[in-house]
Design a protein around this nucleic acid. Structure first.
Lengths: 220, 220
DNA sequence: GTCTATAAAATGATAGAC
DNA sequence: GTCTATCATTTTATAGAC
């Protein structure tokens, strides 16, 4: 959030005064872009399609965004902000950290199964950011947002420096597993194999967390 | 390899007699597409750029491929075939299966670190296949090729049905971890964190393999 | 089998009226 | 702030000479 290299192509509303209606329209365009992306994928994502999907004329789109690139990066930013408010609510939270890890993986897996195009879109956008020079920081922010989120769910109280570190390590590992299974489950389309993989992932993550906690206790 | 639904848009050389020179040119175009993709990403991958990168005129490209889509799918097929011959050679093979798993993960991690654009390209193409109706089978084949490959390296002798099953389960899990770490390591750019993640992945995979073997022995 | 030339459509972006 | 109209390229793809 601090010290980031902001992209050269910033949106016009960031410069002007940002009217009420202006903000609404801008959000509608971003929303339209997300829907067009989910439906048709990156290859078919043109400014015209986005404008149509947002119920706005092409020129209006360009009034709010200097370029297609700046719009796509704004979409990714929106996705990040969205995650931070959406996910934070509806995850059941058992008491023990290990159980929370398990619950979190199961919840993610259910979500992945019913949001195929959304997940693919998100990966496409991440790759787009990694490909777009000067925008790699956005991909980093996306991952850090997820790591923060997962990390806080493992250890709600993060005043303990050690626990915070451990929570983030487990979060990174969970995220690796989830990203990996997104690609593989959509590609293989073998539900029973993916279910086995989820169980294996849960076992591994519980073990990893346990191990990190034991190591910490030893080091005292 | 058998019983797959072939894409409607097949290449012209598959229909005609396939001259020596013709096959060479076709391969050069595919190679050119791979290089153009690695350098500029999907967004910038136009038929003109591919033709230029292959040292061929645009019309020649269209002589060999009905459409851009059929070319891209051919590129993914080529990537799969390439993996099967390239990887199979230069992986050091310790004796114990657990050690082989570890060696394989370490080798993959080294490779990932020095082939960023290649890995991103491959993921972009996989997503493209998942997005392209009627071509999901290609993504499945890609993953099955990797699973076969990793699986055979875990248990070289696969006449034992149980061992083959276990090898494939471990392979799927390794692939999940590797795919996940590809995205995360490029996004976060935090080498020490990624190194920790690799060690955790190794520990988890050794544990998973051990557990599957114990379960098998119990079931006798 | 490879080329030159060109068609036909699509795309990102802008000018200027309202 | 949103629109109509249009520009300037670019893109995929084809026709036809060699």
């Amino acid at each position: 959030m601090m010290g980031e290299t902001k992209p050269k192509t910033r949106t016009k509303t960031a410069l002007t005064g940002a009217t009420r209606k202006g903000v609404e329209t801008r959000n509608r365009i971003i929303k339209g872009a997300r829907e067009a992306l989910e439906q048709g994928g990156m290859e078919a994502l043109t400014t015209r399609r986005i404008a149509a999907s947002a119920g706005v004329k092409l020129a209006t789109l360009h009034y709010y965004f200097d370029s297609k690139e700046s719009l796509l990066l704004a979409v990714l930013e929106d996705l990040i902000a969205d995650m931070e408010v959406t996910y934070r609510q509806d995850v059941a939270l058992p008491e023990a950290p290990e159980d929370r890890v398990e619950a979190l993986i199961r919840a993610s897996w259910r979500y992945i199964q019913r949001t195929r195009n959304k997940q693919i879109s998100q990966t496409e956008l991440t790759l787009y950011a990694l490909r777009t020079k000067g925008s790699e920081w956005l991909a980093a922010r996306q991952y850090n947002a997820y790591i923060d989120f997962y990390g806080h769910l493992v250890f709600v109280d993060d005043r303990d420096e050690d626990l915070r570190r451990i929570g983030r390590a487990v979060a990174r590992q969970m995220l690796i597993g989830i990203d990996g299974i997104i690609l593989q489950s959509y590609a293989l389309q073998d539900l029973s194999a993916s279910n086995d993989d989820i169980e294996a992932l849960i076992t591994a993550m519980r073990g990893y967390l346990r191990r990190l906690l034991v190591e910490r206790d030893k080091a005292r």
